[in-house]
């Protein structure tokens, strides 16, 4: 079964509540939820929607992590440049640039809560996700650095 089919099954079950058994279908083990590319794309949107975040700014840590995840093709670890989520260890790393409109610490806390909540919705973890934010640059009004 492809990764996309697994994700579709999970979504359909969630939406319908009880699966329709009236048609003849082969018996299957219910699909375990996994981290999918669509989950990570949504996570990037969740991060950039936080007020005070000007964007994802990838550093060397997540870049190497993204390459490693692609090579290993692990379903429990999804990485893209700037954002790595590892369901095995229950951790995530997010690298961001901030726009200076709000205190840095407040923005960081909001990013952590938003990412943890979004991953909790997927249902891959038993414990809350531990989100490590790396602030790469801050733009201050009237001055641009980084």
């Amino acid at each position: 079964m492809s990764a996309d089919e697994t994700a579709d099954q999970t979504t359909d079950r969630t939406a319908a509540g009880t699966p329709d058994t009236s048609a003849e279908v082969p018996s299957q083990v219910p699909a375990e939820p996994t981290l999918q590319p669509t989950t990570s794309d949504r996570l990037v949107g969740v991060v950039t929607a936080v007020p005070g975040v000007s964007g994802i700014e990838p550093g060397i840590a997540t870049t190497v992590g993204a390459i490693d995840a692609r090579l290993r093709r692990s379903p429990d670890r999804y990485a893209r440049y700037g954002l790595v989520v590892d369901a095995d260890t229950g951790t995530a790393t997010v690298e961001v640039a901030l726009d200076g409109t709000r205190p840095v610490r407040e923005v960081v806390a909001d990013v952590q809560r938003a990412v943890a909540a979004a991953v909790a919705e997927v249902g891959v973890l038993d414990e809350p996700l531990r989100v490590h934010v790396r602030v790469q640059s801050v733009t201050t009004p009237g001055i641009t650095h980084g």
């Binding site: 901030l98 840095v104 610490r105 960081v108 806390a109 952590q112 809560r113 943890a116 531990r130 989100v131 490590h132 934010v133 790396r134 602030v135 790469q136 640059s137 801050v138 733009t139 201050t140 001055i143 650095h145 980084g146």
Partner: peptide, 16 residues
């Protein structure tokens, strides 16, 4: 923060 650990780049620190 009360939501988790974080770090900042030296560049961002210098900017602030």
């Amino acid at each position: 923060t009360d939501a988790g650990p974080w770090t900042t780049s030296e560049l961002a620190l210098r900017t602030l």
